[in-house]
Amino acid sequence: MMDKHGQEITVKINGKERPFTTDKPIETNILENEKEAEPRPSASFQQKKRKKRSPIIGALNARIKSAIFSIMMAVIIGTSFGFIVLNVIPKEKEHSGQTLETELPVPAESKDPTGQAAESANEAAASSFTVSVIQAGVFTDREAAAAYARQLQSSAIPVVAVGEKPVALFIAVGSDKQQLQAINERYKQKTHSTYIKFLSFASTDRERKPVIKAGEALYREMAAISAILLGKGDVHKEEWKKLESDYKQFISQTLPNDDNIKRYVSHMKAAYNLLIAYKTNQQEELLQKTQQELLEALKSYIAVFPLRS
Rank of each mutant, 00 (worst) to 15 (best):
F83K: 08
A147T: 13
L31M: 13
M72S: 11
M1Q: 08
I302S: 04
L60I: 14
E296N: 07
A37R: 13
S70Q: 08
L286W: 00
L229W: 10
Y264F: 15
L86N: 10
F129P: 00
K16H: 08
S266H: 13
K248R: 09
Q253L: 09
A126S: 11
F305P: 00
G58F: 04
N61T: 15
V160S: 08
L274Q: 10
A43D: 09
Q292S: 12
E17T: 07
E101G: 05
L243H: 00
A37L: 14
E119S: 13
G174H: 04
L230D: 10
K165S: 13
E164C: 00
L294D: 02
E8R: 06
A146I: 09
K91N: 11
K242S: 07
S155D: 13
T79S: 14
F198W: 11
F139A: 05
K49S: 01
E164G: 07
S80E: 09
Q135V: 06
G78A: 08
I77G: 02
Q153F: 08
A224E: 11
F198V: 05
K91G: 01
Y195N: 13
Y148V: 04
L294N: 02
I68E: 10
I84N: 06
I26F: 13
K190C: 00
P107A: 05
R208G: 00
I64R: 14
I89V: 14
L275Y: 10
Y219M: 09
Y148Q: 09
A59T: 13
A146G: 10
S80F: 15
K209E: 07
A172K: 01
D205A: 12
L294S: 01
T194E: 02
D141M: 05
P55L: 03
Q292E: 11
E296L: 08
Q292H: 07
P107L: 03
I64L: 09
